[in-house]
Amino acid sequence: MHLNKTRSWYLEKAGTAFVWLFLIVACALVLIPLVFMFTASAMPARDILRLPYPWIPKGIHWPNFIKGLMGPEDDWIFFRNAFNSLVVAGSVSLFTVLLSSMTGYGLAKFKFRGRTLVFMLIMATMMIPFEAIMIPLYMVAMRMGLQDTYAGLILPFLANAFGVFLMRQFLITFPDEILDAARIDGAGEIRIFTNIVLPSSGPSVATLAILAFRSQWDSLLWPLLVVQSDEMKTIPLYITRYMAETHSDEGIMMAVAVLASIPMITLFLTLSKYFVSKDGLTSATKG
């Protein structure tokens, strides 16, 4: 048997060992900043920038979290800002799903003149990056009186070309017989859509909803443009504001970072399959 243990056998073993070593080191490097965020959030500022970094906090330093929630002016504005983020990300995600599936359904299952043109036009918007139209969009929002409102934060993101594409691709394979059977049974078109089409689009809808929610939770540039008052700020703006005003206290900053990440981490731990699904990934360029 030991005749098999030739040079190539040892090379193979060495290769496997190298692969494991590489992956473990890379994994550690990627996770270190996350570990840093969590451990530092539990430490008083003077421990965080000590040489060398202590890594293990001595218990949780609660003032970080309390001050992080109270905000720079001690008015507990974190809760208001977190609420804003939830309202914006929640509504965008809900209405994006609704609009995209309506449009995708219309394009997939109804024949009308101009259908191809409509589809091409919508797909063409994928080539318009948000960053390129943000200034004109900002002017539009100002003219419509949308600055500093929820509508201003929500409306520009409801029409989502990728969403339409995703839903159309999914619904095009939806069996026509089911729809026709429902029509013969006397169901109206709206009921067919809400009671048959929507409930059976589960995975696509979930991918799209999570995608929309994430990109809004993360959004910095547009809120920077439309929001003026501290009350209307979203979490990313809360963080930038906090950073500008209390740049010195690292413990509070990390506590705020942890607080801001809780919803996403929770979603990730419970619904990770929708985060790393192929549909959700290839769409990133539009997010």
Binding site: S100, M102, T103, K111, I122, I133, A159
Partner: peptide, 22 residues
């Protein structure tokens, strides 16, 4: 055909206001 348009028009309005026009 009419229903097709009904399903498509709402998002066309949004695309017009927030993508094409800008």
């Amino acid at each position: 055909a009419l229903w097709g348009w009904i399903f498509v028009i709402p998002s066309l309005l949004f695309f017009s206001a927030f993508s094409f026009y800008p």
